[in-house]
Design a protein around this nucleic acid. Structure first.
Lengths: 257, 257
DNA sequence: CGCATTGTTGATCTCCATCAATAATTGTGG
DNA sequence: CCACAATTATTGATGGAGATCAACAATGCG
C-alpha cells in the first residue's frame, strides 16, 4: 500500500492555501490574510495515499500533523487477537495526529478508505502556532473538541443503542457531515459518496459483520435508505431520526488547512 | 441536590492557585509565576456540589469553564427512554465544560459522584487566555486530547471487549489514574477510594446492571481485585492486564487550575 | 429503627455472534 | 474485452453472552 507521490496536476492535489477548495465551502469560518500566510508557510508538504493504505500504524507516533484534504479515512484501535474498533471517520478538513502531540500513551491507527490527500504540518511548529497565532490555536482546540464529540456519540451507540439504532445514527451522522461539507449531490436526492464497506460499519458500531448486514438490509427493505454504486441516499430521514434519536446540529468549522 | 456554598475553611476548599494541592502532585507539570498569577486572576469563583448532584444538565450549555479540584464526577449522554451512557469519569485536574465552548450541538451532562469542589473560570476569558498565554492554551488542548483518548479507550471496551474484559480495563484505568494523582494508599496495597456504584460501572461499559454484578463478582472470586468500604484494591494486576490487554502509559499532566 | 439505596442470585428469553455456504461485485492480467 | 481471482454482500442454522424479570439480602442513612 504505497504512498502516491504523483499527485501534482491532479484535481484533488491540494493547491495553495489561498485557493483551498475546502475554504470555499461555508462549512469553514473565515481566516485572516495573515493567518492564511502563516498556514501556507507552515505547511511543509502534500502527500497522497491509495485506498486502503495505512496512513499511521497503531503503535507508532505520528511524525507530523496532517489535515485531510480529500478522501475518507478512519481512526481505529485493535486488541491483540485482531478485534478492531473504529473510533471515528475522518472527512476533509479533519486533523490527523493531534492526539499524539498531547499524550505519550498508546494510540490509534489511521487507515485510508478511499484514496486520500493530506497537507503536512511539521510538529515542531505547533508550539509556534500556539504562540504566534492564537486564533489558529483556538481552531486546533476546536477541532479536537469536535472530534471528541463525534467519539462521544459513537460511544453512546456502541454502549446503549441496538443494532438498527446504531446504523441509523451512523448513516445520519455521516450524511450530515458530508452534506455540511458540500459533498451532497442535490440533483440526486442529496445523495453522498459512501465508500464504507459493511465491515467498516460493523467495526465502527461494535457489531459483527453478519449482523450488520442483516440490520442494514432491514432498514433498506423498510425504505429508510438506499446504498448503491458507492452512494448513500437517505430516503426517510424522519424514521431514521426516530430510530436513533438523532438530534445533533451542524457546527461551523474553524479550519486549519 | 443543592450546591454547597459553605466550603470555606474546609480542607478540600480550593486555596489560592499558588497553594493548589493538585500542583504539588508530580502528575502536573510546572507553570511559571506569570501563568500562575494569570490563572489566579482568571478564576472567578470556587463552588461545591454534594454527592449525586447535577453539575450540568445534558441539554444546557455550560455557563463557565470548570476545573475539578476534588471529588469524582462523570460525563454522560442519555437516550429519550432513559438509557444512559457514561462517557468518561472525571478526576481532580480534569476540565469540565470545554467541549461546549467549541461546538454548539447537543452535549452531555455532568453529574457529581462524590461531593466535589470546582474552580470556576469565566468563558469570556478563554479567548484571552489563548491570546495572552499560549502555554496555558497548549495545556487546555492537551487536556482535551487526553480526555478524548480516555473516551477512545472506553469505546474500544464498549465495542469490542466482553463483559469481564471491560471491567478489567476500567478498574485498571481508574486505578492508574487515581494512583497517578497520588490518591493511592501505599500502606494498604495501593488501594484507592472507589466511589462508583455498580450502576455507574454498568452505564460506563454499556452493560446491564445485573450482568455487571455477575462479572464483577467473578473477577472478585478469582482474586483479581477487591472492593470494600468504598475502596478498590488491585490484587492481581497481571491477570487484569491480560484480560483487558491493558497497556496505556501514564502521562504528565499539564494543569490549568 | 424504618426506609432507601445498593448488591446478590436464580430463571428465562433474545439479540447478536459464530459457523457455513453462496451470490454479487470489483478488480486484474492476459 | 473477457476469464478468473479476490473482495464484498447475502442468507440460513445454531449457540451463547448478556438482557430482562423477579426476589431477596446487605448496607447505609435520617
Amino acid at each position: 500500500m504505497p504512498k502516491l507521490r504523483q499527485l501534482v496536476n491532479r484535481s484533488d492535489y491540494p493547491p495553495a492555501c489561498s485557493q483551498c477548495a475546502l475554504r470555499k465551502s461555508d462549512a469553514f469560518s473565515p481566516v485572516s490574510d495573515a493567518q492564511l500566510r502563516y498556514i501556507e508557510a507552515m505547511r511543509s508538504d502534500r502527500i497522497g495515499y491509495s485506498a486502503g493504505s495505512h496512513i499511521k500504524p497503531e503503535n507508532q507516533r505520528a511524525t507530523a500533523l496532517y489535515t485531510l484534504y480529500s478522501g475518507w479515512a478512519f481512526r481505529f484501535k485493535t486488541l491483540s487477537d485482531g478485534r478492531r474498533q473504529i473510533l471515528n471517520f475522518l472527512l476533509p478538513g479533519d486533523l490527523i495526529g493531534l492526539q499524539e502531540q498531547f499524550s505519550d500513551g498508546p494510540s490509534h491507527g489511521v487507515d485510508a478508505i478511499t484514496e486520500v490527500t493530506l497537507c503536512v504540518f511539521p510538529l515542531t511548529k505547533l508550539w509556534d502556532l500556539f504562540r504566534d497565532h492564537s486564533g489558529l490555536a483556538y481552531s486546533v482546540t476546536w477541532l479536537a473538541a469536535r472530534e471528541e464529540s463525534n467519539v462521544d456519540e459513537n460511544l453512546l451507540s456502541a454502549g446503549r443503542r441496538n443494532a438498527s439504532e446504531r446504523i441509523a445514527a451512523l448513516l445520519l451522522h455521516l450524511h450530515r457531515r458530508a452534506t455540511h461539507l458540500g459533498l451532497a449531490d442535490l440533483a440526486d436526492n442529496g445523495s453522498i459518496a459512501f465508500p464504507l464497506t459493511q465491515s467498516h460499519i460493523a467495526d465502527a458500531l461494535g457489531l459483527s459483520l453478519i449482523h450488520t448486514n442483516r440490520s442494514l438490509r432491514k432498514l433498506h427493505l423498510a425504505g429508510l435508505h438506499h446504498i448503491e454504486g458507492g452512494r448513500l441516499t437517505i430516503l426517510n430521514p424522519k424514521a431514521l431520526e426516530r430510530l436513533s434519536e438523532y438530534y445533533d446540529q451542524p457546527t461551523r468549522q474553524v479550519p486549519l488547512i
